[in-house]
């Protein structure tokens, strides 16, 4: 029995350098969190004060913490967003309430954010 092979050096179509693409397969794409945004969007001094606190907390304290918040967005982000949306007093109390809700017993009441593996509880 004769076996013959068809051999052609070049594939038809555009010559794609697939090895060149594979070169970057292990490259990391890290996104940098931006905690200065609330400072820029603050509308008054009190809000700016809380924005500075938020930045300080996120940069020097939260960055060294275990991943302990059960919610997404996290309690600090929730508070700063609530302050921006509803004003300083309402937002502060809302944030404090959220902080006391943030415990292992906080189940059954919240939908689950599967991307972050947390309970989803945005500012309303």
């Amino acid at each position: 029995m004769n076996i013959t092979f068809k051999i052609q050096a070049q594939a038809p179509g555009n010559n794609v350098d697939y090895i060149g693409q594979v070169e970057h397969v292990f490259d990391l794409h890290l996104h940098q969190d931006n905690w200065t945004a609330p400072m820029r969007s603050a509308r008054n001094e009190a809000e700016f004060f809380f924005a500075v606190l938020y930045w300080t907390y996120k940069t020097f304290i939260s960055s060294q913490d275990i991943d302990s918040c059960v919610f997404y967005p996290s309690c600090s982000t929730y508070m700063i967003e609530s302050i921006h949306k509803h004003g300083v007093l309402y937002g502060f109390l809302d944030g404090i309430d959220r902080l006391s809700r943030c415990s292992p017993f906080a189940n059954n009441h919240y939908p689950i954010d599967f991307k972050h593996k947390k309970y989803y509880d945005p500012v309303q």
Binding site: K6, I7, Q8
Partner: peptide, 9 residues
Amino acid sequence: KTDTVKTEW
């Protein structure tokens, strides 16, 4: 149908 082209794909 061509063997080496098949390999390329």
